[in-house]
Design a protein around this nucleic acid. Structure first.
Length: 219
DNA sequence: AAAAAAGTCAACCGCCACGAT
DNA sequence: AATCGTGGCGGTTGACTTTTT
């Protein structure tokens, strides 16, 4: 359906109709996908060449892959984006049947959020808790970035950015009650005042949710 | 059930590069 | 060398759909 507001002196705008698609396809079949202004004229379409090109590239041309982006494709997009940045046409060139517009949309609606979420997890202050305060102190010494580690009252060590969370964490752990297993077993969690008191159940939930985070900080 | 908010995606816009004149 | 037309690209918009409140 073409909205009323989508027509002006420059020609049709808005969504393409099946009839327009058919006309465009017919002309391209004869003259090839080039000289878009002439294609638009030959097809008798009241649209600019640019619009015709876009419709062909993103919708009408053969071998366009429809349907959800697979896990393999997503992985490839992530890796290519890391390498190339927002060079959507280059990325799309590595994914047969996918268009630059589709990749860009997928990135903006799915992957950028995923990236932000991961970044947020990485930037949280990490917390190491032991049932033994001496073991916690020893662990703090062994940390690869001791300048970023802080031994808290009792048996908790925070590891993370040197930011303004330290004071909050300190009082937070003073009031914490920890009912972990006996011995020097370490558990990992993540300090976040919004998520309520830190306890074993909560930490186990966290670990189930994000195993990769755990292995990254194994001591 | 209805309204609001969030998500999706096709299409448009403006800029730039490049070839033709 | 300067200008113009065209195609290609990435950013953005807005209509429509889905989910949440």
């Amino acid at each position: 359906m073409v909205p009323l507001s989508s027509k002006n002196k420059e020609g049709n705008r808005g969504s393409w109709t099946a009839e327009e698609d058919q006309k465009l396809s017919q002309v391209i079949e004869i003259h090839g996908p080039r000289k878009w202004k002439s294609v638009a004229t030959k097809a008798g379409l009241n649209r600019c060449g640019k619009s015709c090109r876009l419709r062909w590239m993103n919708y009408l041309r053969p071998n366009i892959k429809r349907g959800n982006i697979s896990d393999q494709e997503e992985d490839l997009i992530l890796r290519l984006h890391k390498l190339l940045g927002n060079r959507w046409s280059l990325i799309a060139g590595r994914l047969p049947g996918r268009t630059d517009n589709e990749i860009k949309n997928y990135w903006n609606s799915h992957l950028s959020k995923k990236m932000k979420h991961n970044e947020r997890l990485q930037n949280r202050n990490r917390v190491l808790v032991s049932t033994s305060s001496s073991a916690a102190a020893a662990a703090a010494q062994e940390l690869s970035e001791p300048q970023n580690a802080k031994l808290m009252e009792g048996n908790a060590v925070t590891v993370g950015r040197e930011d303004n969370n330290s004071k909050r964490d300190e009082s937070y752990f003073k009031s914490m009650s920890f009912n972990g297993p006996s011995g020097d077993e370490f558990l990992f969690g993540c300090s976040n005042a919004d998520e309520g008191p830190l306890n074993l159940e909560w930490m186990n939930r966290f670990l189930e949710m994000d195993e990769s985070w755990f292995t990254l900080h194994d001591i």
